[in-house]
C-alpha cells in the first residue's frame, strides 16, 4: 500500500469507478428533476428542480385510468414472470439432469432460434392469436414469453452447480423426480431464481412492440404503451412524460433493490 505506484493505481481505480457510477446514475437524476419542471423548462435544458411536480402528477393521473393501467402492467409482468420461471427452469433442469443425445441436439438448435428478430415473427403470431380468439387479452401477451430460450440456457448453466449428492440423497429417501425439483432444487437455487426474476420481470415490463400490436383498447394498455403514447402528441408535455417515465421505472427498480442481495449470488451459479 505504501508503494506510490500502487497508490496512484488505487486513485485511478476510484476515479474510474466514480465516473462510471456518475454516468450510470445521472440519467435517473435527470428524469427526477424533469418530473418537477414544466415542459418549457425541460426543453430549455433546466437542470435544477422546479415546482411543477404536483401539476405534472395530476395531469399524468388524469390522462388515463391509472389504477387499471398499473394493474395490467403488474398482472402481465407478474404472472408472466412466475410462469416463465417455472416452465423455463423445469426445462433447464431437465436438459442438464437428464442428458440424452437427442435432447442435446434440440438444445443446440435453440440458440439459433434465439437469433431470429421478433419483427419477423409478429405477423404469424398475430394470425395465430386471432385464430385462438386471444386478441386484446393478457394471455396473448404472456403465452409467447413463457418458454424463454435465454432463461432455459440460464437455468441449465446454473443447474451445473447444483450438488448432485443432494439429488441422490433425495432419491434414496424415496422422493419422486418432481418432488426433488420442487422440494430440493427450488429452495436450494433460490438465488438463481432471484436473479432470473429481475431479468424476466424487466423484459416483461418493458415489452413494447408485441403488446402494442395485440392490445386494442384503453382498458388493456400497459404503462409502457401509455408512456410511449404521451411522447408522440403534436405538443407533448415533457413534464408529464417524465412523471410517466418515473412510474415506468420504479417497479423494476424496487424489484431490483428487494432482490439485490441474492442477485450476484444467483448469477454466480449461472457462470460456473
Amino acid at each position: 500500500m505504501s508503494n506510490p505506484i500502487a497508490l496512484i493505481g488505487r486513485a485511478a481505480t476510484y476515479l474510474l469507478l466514480l465516473l462510471a457510477a456518475f454516468i450510470s446514475v445521472f440519467p435517473f437524476f435527470w428524469m427526477a428533476v424533469g418530473a418537477t419542471n414544466t415542459s418549457a423548462d425541460i426543453l430549455k435544458g433546466k437542470a435544477t428542480p422546479g415546482g411543477a411536480l404536483w401539476a405534472n402528477m395530476v395531469n399524468f393521473f388524469s390522462s388515463v385510468d391509472m389504477p387499471r393501467i398499473l394493474f395490467n402492467s403488474f398482472f402481465i409482468a407478474g404472472v408472466g414472470t412466475a410462469l416463465t420461471l417455472l416452465v423455463s427452469s423445469l426445462a433447464g433442469y431437465g436438459f442438464e439432469m437428464f442428458r440424452s443425445r437427442f435432447r442435446e441436439r434440440i438444445f443446440g438448435s435453440l440458440l439459433l432460434m434465439l437469433s431470429i428478430p421478433f419483427a419477423a415473427l409478429m405477423i404469424p403470431l398475430f394470425i395465430m392469436m386471432a385464430n385462438l380468439k386471444l386478441i386484446n387479452t393478457y394471455q396473448a401477451i404472456i403465452l409467447p414469453t413463457i418458454a424463454s430460450i435465454f432463461i432455459v440456457f440460464y437455468f441449465r448453466q446454473a443447474t451445473k452447480a447444483f450438488p448432485h449428492e443432494l439429488r441422490d440423497a433425495a432419491r434414496i429417501d424415496g422422493l419422486k423426480e418432481w418432488q426433488i425439483f420442487f422440494w430440493v432444487y427450488m429452495p436450494v437455487m433460490r438465488s438463481t431464481y432471484a436473479a432470473a426474476t429481475i431479468i424476466v420481470f424487466m423484459a416483461n415490463w418493458n415489452n413494447y412492440l408485441w403488446p402494442l400490436i395485440v392490445l386494442q383498447t384503453n382498458e388493456m394498455k400497459t404503462l409502457t404503451l401509455v408512456v410511449a403514447g404521451l411522447t408522440s402528441a403534436y405538443t407533448p408535455d415533457w413534464g408529464v412524460v417524465m412523471v410517466g417515465a418515473i412510474f415506468a421505472t420504479l417497479p423494476t427498480l424496487i424489484i431490483f433493490f428487494l432482490l439485490q442481495r441474492r442477485f450476484v449470488e444467483g448469477m454466480l451459479g449461472a457462470v460456473k
Binding site: 462510471a20 457510477a21 435527470w30 428524469m31 418493458n206 408512456v227 421505472t249 423494476t252
Partner: peptide, 24 residues
C-alpha cells in the same frame, strides 16, 4: 455502492430511458 450504481441502468424502463437520452 459502485456495483449497484453501475448495474442500475439495465433495470430502467426502455421507454423512459429513450425519452431521457433524447432530451439529454
Amino acid at each position: 455502492w459502485f456495483r449497484t450504481a453501475i448495474f442500475l441502468p439495465c433495470v430502467t424502463s426502455l421507454v423512459a430511458y429513450s425519452v431521457v437520452f433524447r432530451s439529454m
